[in-house]
Nucleic acid binder design. Structure first.
Length: 640
RNA sequence: GGCGACGUAGCUUAGUUGGUUAGAGCGGCCGGUUCAUACCCGGCAGGUCGGCGGUUCGACUCCACCCGUCGCUACCA
């Protein structure tokens, strides 16, 4: 009987369209799922969407839609992208699914009835106008982060989960399963920051917004989104809080791995295991926290309009190329970087030149010398041995890397097959053999060895690039192999190659591409600039005046802040500005600079800031510069 | 502030319990080849393994300190 393997992605939050970095996780997980299937595991791969919470309620409202309407649209978009990227999930769960909702209510009730959840009082900082509770760390200079007004300590009724009760058991689980948190460096963060100081009980209900799963015995409250979201891993495969589990649950739980982003490791390695302990269910075997795929030259930002989306990139470069790229761009323990130039370099280098061209030249020779048909004619030469060893040895090396979730390294191992095969062509020089009638069998054997190497390599590459590798197999008139026979050379007895093999990966003219891209972006910016035109009445709301800095010092408690005392006409004000990385206090004293004077005051590190220095930022060069009048003007002069 | 990680060739990076000439890919330079998507193959470039000490017969790999970069520091997901 096949061994089971259950893996999941984190479910994607439906607050907006996922960028390529979010999509990376689905592709990564898919690569693992496909590799495991080739290895013969009975794989269940679950992904989906997390659709509740205040943020979504707010976003929907802003878009003039009902929350359900809103999440239907976004979830549809996410599913469409996953499908487009060939993510081969077995189940796509949505937290608005009826059976999920029902189970969450049952789970909440069960935990309440057994005393792990209790009713208490949530104490936080409350902003009355915004009707919002904030935590200490969310406050901005001691004030409401939304409106900047005063907040008050306030209490509200809420349900809490007794986290501390399970802390010792969790520690024990960490100790007994050293690979539970991967990379292990994250484990220390969890232990040192949370477990050692003592776990606080977690507030698991909300009553300040509605868009969530109602607590069925107390409908003022909705279930805290993380209890809702995390449980998808069991509800999606048929968990039942009453114990009448579905077949899939009995078969697949516990999960073999939860693949998640590094930002949510805490939820998956502390809260989730504790919820499971409380439910009396086994814990997942591993939580793998991957790094982030970042965009070159700073953050992706929707307002800047430089966000890369996987589906757009796939339209430009192809699904397989983007899958390959995002998988290889990620180092094991840190973040990866994505840029158009490096995508093109990878496509041209490894995909077109090494892999694609190998397929192309081999197919062409088989057609040219033998009319498209070739088999092992038995003309072995010692030089063949090394080729076969490299080709047949690649699986073990790649599989070892996959077991460590070092995907990029696994792919690198596969490429040694193609590199070795290219070298083999130079070593055996088929074009010279072809000129000697007596070497015909040798030539046939050489080309057969190449075809066989390509099929083995393509089979290994298949989990990462499903379509292109299948095409490669079609070119050689065969199918890709599962990994039980991947270490044997000579499985196929003969190859029949198609006549006009299509090019798997076209080379891209990088210079031309970048020029066209720049032209396109400039055009977009112009359009955008026009769209964002404002009237003079908008501008006149902002009062800018020239201020003279009469004193300046560093704010001790902070890294970035400077406290400035400025004179605007007869008035003296205190301003806090985050520019200490760019200016020393001495540099600023005596200077005249432009400042917004009618901004609502805000407390930063306990100091009230009564205005804002305006600065120009050159992100690329990392330069920040304040603006000052070109001629000397009296402080207090207005800027128009 | 507390805890932790990292800093290896122009770039991205491997380096397992310390041990002979520190590996690879990309880029660069030189040479070879023509089956192929101006591809492929070979060679070279020569990096004080962040800095300074220490332990050791011997350290990129262990310890201390310094410099730099980054992560986590709880109820927004």
């Amino acid at each position: 009987m096949k061994e089971k393997f259950y893996l999941t992605t984190a479910i994607a939050y439906t607050s907006g369209k996922p960028h390529v970095g979010n999509t990376y996780e689905a592709i990564l997980s898919d690569a693992v799922a496909r590799f495991k299937r080739r290895q013969g595991y009975d794989v269940f791969f679950q992904t989906g969407t997390d659709e509740h919470g205040q943020k979504i309620e707010d976003k929907a409202k802003a878009a003039g839609k009902s929350p359900k309407q809103f999440v239907d649209e976004v979830a549809g978009e996410i599913k469409r992208i996953w499908d487009k990227m060939e993510v081969s999930y077995d189940k796509f769960i949505r937290t608005t699914d009826e059976d999920h909702v029902k189970q969450i209510q049952k789970i909440f009730k069960k935990l309440y009835e057994q005393g792990d959840i209790y009713k208490g009082e949530y104490e936080g900082w409350y902003c009355k106008p915004c009707e919002s509770f904030w935590t200490e760390s969310q406050l901005n200079g001691g004030k409401c982060p939304d409106c900047g007004r005063e907040v008050k300590k306030a209490k509200e009724e809420a349900y809490f989960f007794k986290m501390s009760k399970y802390a010792d058991r969790l520690m024990k689980y960490y100790d007994e399963h050293p690979e539970f948190i991967t990379p292990v460096s994250r484990k220390n963060e969890m232990i040192n920051n949370f477990l050692k100081p003592g776990l606080q009980d977690l507030c698991v209900s909300r009553s300040t917004f509605k868009w969530g799963i109602p607590v069925d015995f107390d409908d003022k409250h909705v279930v805290y989104v993380w209890l809702d979201a995390l449980s998808n891993y069991i509800t999606g495969i048929g968990y039942d809080a009453d114990g009448n589990h579905g077949e899939n649950y009995k078969k697949y739980w516990p999960a073999d791995v939860h693949i998640i982003g590094k930002d949510i490791i805490r939820f998956h390695t502390i809260y989730w295991p504790i919820f499971l302990m409380a439910l009396g269910e086994p814990l997942p075997k591993k939580v793998y926290g991957h790094g982030w795929l970042l965009q070159e030259g700073g953050k992706m930002s929707k307002s800047v309009g430089n966000v890369l989306y996987a589906d757009d990139l796939a339209d430009t470069f192809g699904v397989d190329a983007i899958r390959y790229y995002v998988l290889t761009a990620m180092p094991m323990e840190s973040d990866g970087v994505i840029s158009y130039e490096s995508i093109i370099d990878e496509i041209n280098g490894n995909l077109a030149n090494v892999f694609g061209n190998l397929v192309s030249r081999t197919a062409a020779m088989i057609n040219k010398y033998f009319g498209g048909s070739v088999y092992d004619a038995g003309a072995f030469e010692p030089i063949d041995q090394d080729l076969k060893e490299v080709v047949c040895g690649a699986y073990k090396k790649a599989a070892a890397k996959m077991d460590e979730y070092r995907i990029a390294d696994a792919i690198e191992q596969v490429f040694t097959v193609f590199r070795r095969a290219n070298k083999y062509i130079d070593e055996t020089t088929p074009w010279i053999l072809s000129k000697d009638e007596s070497k015909k069998d040798r030539l046939k054997t050489v080309l057969y060895n190449l075809a066989e190497s390509i099929i083995i390599g393509a089979s290994l590459l298949n989990p990462f690039m499903p379509k292109a590798t299948e095409k490669a197999a079609e070119i050689f008139g065969t199918k890709l192999r599962d990994y039980d026979i991947i270490e044997t050379f000579g499985v196929n007895k003969e190859y029949k190659v198609v006549n006009d093999a299509e090019i798997l990966f076209a080379r891209i003219d990088k210079e031309k591409f970048m020029e066209e891209l720049n032209a396109k972006q400039q055009a977009n910016e112009q359009v955008k600039a026009q769209e964002e035109l404002i009237g003079i009445e908008d501008f006149s709301k902002v009062k800018i005046k020239i201020a003279k800095v009469i004193a300046c010092e560093k704010v001790e408690k902070s890294k970035k802040l400077l406290k400035l005392t400025v004179k605007i006409g007869d008035e003296q004000r205190t301003v806090v500005s985050g520019i200490s990385n760019y200016y020393t206090p001495e540099e600023l004293i005596g200077k005249k600079l432009a400042m917004i004077v009618n901004l609502k005051p805000a407390k930063l590190c306990g100091i009230e800031s009564q205005g804002m220095i305006i600065c120009a930022e050159d992100e690329k060069a990392g330069v920040v510069a304040y603006l000052s009048p070109e001629k000397d003007v009296e402080e207090g002069s207005q800027v128009f």
